[in-house]
């Protein structure tokens, strides 16, 4: 009976992990079921390299012993295996809630990695992580979720290996253009994934909506050699701007958050600006803004509990706009 590729990979893992001493390629070829007996050395070598790569991807750390004329291989036990994991009951619930929501989310890019990670954590912990009864599959990105999830998974690999990505991008005006960019980071906001990338043709950093990306191709030549360097201090969080922050000229607003707005302050400010406690139940939020109208609208939509401390012009636009609303509906 022939041995499938996945069986051969498992066999190799068991062979390496049960060996009492480092083993040579020759011993592996003889002892591991699945390597064809009539295979030449070069073909075996290629197959063995790929299998080792797959084992690394599964988490096995394979050491190479070069102390002799032939290379020998063994599993690095300390680097591969984990200690037991102690989970508090509430943490087990948090994990299962996150898992129930995201494993079923067609737009979540890392479902398979999450599945394996949870299996490993469950195996290592004394708490049984059961399926959640209440949590439904999430829909984080609602437009063409499967395509967005797949593109984000592909772009995440490009970010990790620092390889260029090419795609057709449909701009806001509906026109499509071909881009080749250096992907630096990804973030999700209000149901959409965004790519932050350096665009050499435009000589700047651009934010692309992943739902408008088509025909994505990541540079596949020399996969282990990076095409570019991501700047050392790059942090995708600084690019997660709010709608009123896009524009050429930026000013600072100071808002006071009280009551319900204070309660959900970290969610409201979404990592932008600086948030400081102001008394016991309030915060002062200093935040850059570029579009006063959009900022005033955001305040009206996100309250109650948001007061404009400065600038005066922002408070004036908010008040004037609201008076107009009252008049129109009186």
């Amino acid at each position: 009976m022939s041995v499938t590729a996945s069986e051969r990979i498992v066999n190799l893992a068991l062979f390496l992990a049960s060996a009492r001493r480092p083993v040579s390629a020759q011993e592996i070829a003889a002892g591991v079921a699945g390597y064809p007996a009539d295979q030449n050395a070069a073909a075996f070598g290629r197959m063995f390299e790929r299998d080792k790569e797959d084992l690394r991807h599964a988490g096995l750390v394979i050491e190479i012993d070069r102390s002799d004329t032939v290379e020998r291989y063994r599993v690095d036990v300390d680097a591969t295996f984990s200690e037991d994991l102690k989970l508090e009951p509430v943490e087990a619930v948090e994990l299962r809630a996150a898992a129930a929501a995201m494993l079923g989310d067609p737009s979540f890019p890392y479902a398979e990695d999450l599945r394996i990670a949870l299996a490993k954590l469950t195996a290592a912990s004394d708490v049984r992580v059961r399926a959640s009864a209440a949590v439904m599959p999430a829909l984080s990105a609602d437009e063409d979720p499967v395509a967005q999830g797949a593109a984000v998974a592909e772009l995440t690999r490009a970010i990790g290996s620092r390889k260029r990505a090419s795609f057709a991008y449909t701009g806001a005006a509906g026109r499509s253009s071909q881009r080749t960019v250096e992907p630096w980071g990804l973030f999700a906001r209000d149901g959409r994934w965004y790519l932050v990338a350096h665009d050499p043709a435009a000589d700047g950093v651009r934010v692309f909506a992943v739902s408008r990306v088509g025909e994505l191709v990541v540079e596949s030549s020399r996969p282990k050699t990076p095409d570019f360097d991501t700047p050392a201090g790059f942090d995708v969080r600084t690019w997660m701007l709010m709608p009123f922050q896009y524009g050429p000229h930026s000013r600072e607003a100071t808002l006071r958050l009280t009551g319900p707005a204070a309660h959900r302050a970290t969610a409201l400010v979404a990592g932008q600006g600086t948030l400081a406690a102001d008394g016991r139940d309030a915060y002062l939020w200093r935040v850059p803004f570029a579009d006063e109208t959009l900022m005033a609208r955001w305040i009206a939509a996100s309250g109650p509990g948001i007061e404009v401390v400065a600038p005066g012009s922002l408070r004036d636009s908010l008040v004037a706009g609201l008076r107009k609303v009252v008049e129109q509906h009186g």
Partner: peptide, 23 residues
């Protein structure tokens, strides 16, 4: 062999972190 749980790889750690971020 392989009866002990294996550590999370970088991509697996990122997947758990991303899922926990969403809650």
């Amino acid at each position: 062999a392989l009866e002990r749980p294996v550590r999370l790889t970088p991509v697996e750690a990122r997947a758990v972190t991303a899922a926990l971020e969403t809650i």
